[in-house]
């Protein structure tokens, strides 16, 4: 155990420097071209503050503007028949299904704020008293899957007009009972298929799809369709949203 290591002839690292440097250079180049480059790029995930992430955010804002320009307020999403409805309709949120809030209907009040003249609170029966309509449309998730569902409620434009919202404002924002939030552009808010939803897929007592109030927007990706809405506000200041603030594209129109 305590044996002395045999004395080796003195070899200095210096003697091998040229060879080592050559190997290092070769390795560096090889990695630089393959894995190194890839891992450097895949580090850019919109969560850091480096130059590439800034470029990706800037491109996302540019894509917002392009999508707003492409958006045709008169163009309707395709509608489907009752037979085509997806059963059961998939549940999706940033949390697992058992965590979905269950709201006691009689206590529910929808709050309004921002550029709205009549900020009186709304009960479910007040919303039910507005003209009702139903639609069967395709819900497309940002993850890629889609499902066809049936929703019923009031055309959102009718509601916005009724409460005296400033329809020239830029944004309509939503706050939800599950601490979720999102916001949309005014042209989409005024689209004839954008619905202040009171009737949901599934059985009448199924609350997980957003009871009592959801905003259904068939011209936007699923995550732009807020559930369990407790507050609606109109503003000219970009409100962002739960997913949007983390890097998902804000406009996300279909």
């Amino acid at each position: 155990m305590s044996a002395q290591p045999p004395v080796k002839p003195k070899i200095s690292l210096k003697d091998f420097r040229p060879q080592i440097e050559r190997i290092e250079r070769r390795l560096f180049l090889k990695q630089g071209l393959s894995l190194g480059a890839l891992s450097m790029l895949s580090g850019c995930t919109l969560k850091d503050d480096d130059a590439v992430d800034k470029l990706l955010w800037a491109m996302s804002r540019w894509n917002d503007r392009v999508q707003a320009a492409i958006f045709d307020p008169a163009k309707l999403a395709r509608t489907y028949t009752e037979a085509e409805v997806t059963e059961p309709f998939p549940f999706n949120a940033y949390y697992e299904e058992p965590m979905a809030p269950v709201i006691y209907g009689p206590d529910y009040r929808l709050e309004l704020s921002g550029l709205i003249s009549d900020k009186r609170q709304w009960r479910i029966e007040d919303l039910r008293a507005l003209p009702q309509t139903t639609q069967i449309t395709q819900h497309i998730c940002v993850e890629g899957w889609s499902a066809i569902g049936k929703w019923g409620g009031t055309v959102f434009k009718t509601f916005l007009e009724r409460v005296g919202a400033d329809l020239t404002a830029k944004y309509v924002g939503f706050k939800c009972a599950d601490k979720y939030s999102t916001s949309i552009d005014m042209p989409t808010a005024l689209h004839p298929q954008t619905l202040l939803t009171l009737d949901f897929p599934g059985k009448p007592d199924d609350t997980k799809y957003g009871y009592p109030v959801k905003v259904r927007i068939p011209t936007k990706l699923g995550f732009k369709n807020p559930k369990f809405v407790t507050e609606i506000f109109v503003t000219n200041d970009y409100p962002g949203g739960y997913w949007e603030n983390q890097g998902y594209n804000w406009f996300s129109g279909s």
Partner: peptide, 15 residues
């Protein structure tokens, strides 16, 4: 894959 997570990958794809 590129982007780290879905939002990052989508940002890369749409850029």
């Amino acid at each position: 894959t590129l982007g780290g997570w879905l939002a990052g990958a989508l940002a890369w794809h749409f850029a």
